[in-house]
Nucleic acid binder design. Structure first.
Lengths: 344, 344
DNA sequence: CTCTGTTGCTGCATCGATTGAGCAAGCATG
DNA sequence: CATGCTTGCTCAATCGATGCAGCAACAGAG
């Protein structure tokens, strides 16, 4: 049962990790030589091939792994890049997290992501933690209060970039929510009017109006209507928050069945689709919706006209490009969304 | 534009972080006192309230944040717990990542998650990295080769737990794939036979047969058939890998339209559903499927009979309970799945 | 006035890796 | 044989936080 081998010069005895000093001792050399060999600077430091080989062999044999806490402490750079995301469990943030890691590794960083559940206190706490781990740069995604985090980072002399939601105290890379919403609304309006033969105002469901992204999307939504000479009644905009249940409740509370719905996020869409499937079949037939954000299953639902997919690769490409420049100005970069329409 | 204030005793000048020595100097005390005050051990170390207050005030004023690299180096414990996940961008792993972080924080750990794209080399590399950051414990989720990672961890004296996929060299917490697949298949078989009046073998799509989870699910799938006296032809099991496109291709390649499909994961389901929506409407009508793993949108698709949802909270609860015991034996814990059936 | 005990602090070694400075040995050149 | 150069290594300080050992000052007991 117990596989720990106590004897011999094998791998570290439980609890004690091998250090460069251990290796130096068994090889009969100095810790500096071991360090130089193991971090690749040995040629420059004129260590002989022979010694290098002996050291490498012993390191492998002992299962050595560097203590990066010690290494980072000594060097000026930590090579750690941090990210704060509100949630992992939807496709948008899942993709952001995944591609952030990929990009970070490609740029030579070690990525550390922390999920903050849209809780402002947890956001601050997480940012502080990441700073304590000496991140060189922090990417703040969808934070409720990005500016306070920017302040923290500035105090520590750490680069910050806002992603997805803009802030006023750091560079921001965000989707062009207005453009995406405008185009998406145009599509839904024209499909519906082709179907019914007349123009009818759509409903907007989900999000919060004081949130930048939602207000930009509402602006696009309204503009698409006014392009057709329509004025949307205020009651058609149900900015009820992001939770799925809220969307379900506010659609149910309407008292009638809206025929065209702009859903503000896949999270709200979960509620909207649930509401839809709970309707009697004949009501369900001619309801159409579109949704800001993309999900592969939601995109294939029969009532879905199209989705606006935020261009995650482009967003992250912009973020890493910004990080590489080392600039510190406070600007906002807009990245266009991709429209993904249902094949008829 | 430039908000950096160079003068005064304010927050750190860009590039230089405040340390306990800086604070000690401005307060006119020793670094030990500052350390004791800032890490909460000052009462025990008999620092006066007055000095403690002065130190705290200066620390806040200077925007001090502890250097955890230095702290961890000195102490015996790092408080870091690591996790390796193959992907973030589906609901199952998204939920695992999110709840892992929550559980880790509750247990007093700092969670670090790394995503390895189902790439065995990246898995090893990531494990090595996490060990270098002195993780106290590593949770290995869905790794292609968990045992090699276990070896690495044992060599470093670090606890390991396998999650989702079992390994032979560490404790494993996994879903009861056989039970879940058995029950799910029973449901689909009975719904289909109620519909058509006769028993018909289902198709199994997705996964790899040499993968533990897939083979257990196939076993459940076959057993549900044999309970009804049916023998499934080998050709009905399309273990074509996990990628969505593979599922699409192997369903298209069949040459006929199977009427009942057991889909092995939501990733494969993306392909299956795409295949479904590409079919002519009359073919699509009476196809039913079920799927192992849960997705809120997929669950609401009209042809979906039910999904097996892995009990993520229970899985992680078991993982953390195991970590807390500190035991090292090699056992497998099975956690039952929840069946989520389509409301008729 | 000495002895013991308490309060409130400081000094210093330590964790493991890194790196500039430096040293001994070997060799070639004048 | 003195000088300079190269090769191949070692020494020791350093990064920032921690915590043990210890010390000065003072109070109270005898």
């Amino acid at each position: 049962m117990n596989s720990g081998d106590e004897a011999g010069s094998g791998p570290a005895i439980s609890g004690k990790r091998t250090t460069i000093y251990d290796i130096a001792q068994t090889v009969g050399t100095s810790a500096s030589a071991v360090s130089a060999v193991l971090n690749g600077t040995w040629r420059k430091r004129r260590i002989s091939q022979k010694l290098a080989d002996r050291i490498s062999a012993v390191a492998v044999e002992k299962g050595y792994s560097i203590n990066l806490q010690a290494s980072v402490l000594r060097r000026e750079r930590s090579n750690i890049i941090g990210m704060i995301v509100p949630k992992y469990d939807n496709r948008y943030f899942g993709a952001i997290a995944e591609q952030f890691e990929e990009g970070a590794r490609k740029a030579g960083y070690f990525p550390v992501i922390t999920c903050t559940q849209r809780d402002p206190n947890l956001e601050l706490e997480a940012a502080r933690m990441l700073l304590s781990y000496q991140v060189e740069c922090l990417i703040v995604t969808g934070a409720t209060d990005p500016d306070r985090i920017s302040d923290l980072c500035h105090a520590a002399g750490v680069k910050v970039v806002n992603l997805d939601l803009p802030g006023s105290k750091a560079h921001s890379v965000i989707s062009d929510n207005h453009q995406g919403a405008l185009e998406l609304t145009r599509v839904l309006l024209s499909v519906r009017s082709a179907q019914t033969g007349r123009d009818e105002c759509l409903y907007f469901v989900g999000g919060r109006t004081n949130d930048h992204n939602t207000s930009e999307r509402v602006r696009g939504f309204l503009q698409a209507h006014s392009e057709r000479g329509m004025t949307v009644p205020a009651a058609n905009v149900l900015a009820c928050g992001y939770a799925a249940q809220k969307a379900y409740d506010s659609l149910s509370a309407l008292g009638h069945v809206p025929k065209g719905i702009f859903v503000n996020s896949t999270i709200s869409l979960e509620g909207a689709v649930r509401w839809l499937t709970d309707l009697p079949a004949q009501d369900r037939q001619d309801i159409l919706y579109c949704c800001f954000d993309w999900d592969p299953f939601a995109a294939l639902m029969p009532n879905c006209v199209g989705m606006a997919q935020q261009d995650v690769p482009a967003l992250l490409e912009r973020v890493f490009a910004w990080v590489a420049t080392g600039k510190t100005s406070t600007t906002v970069e807009l990245v266009p969304c991709r429209l993904r329409l249902q094949q008829p």
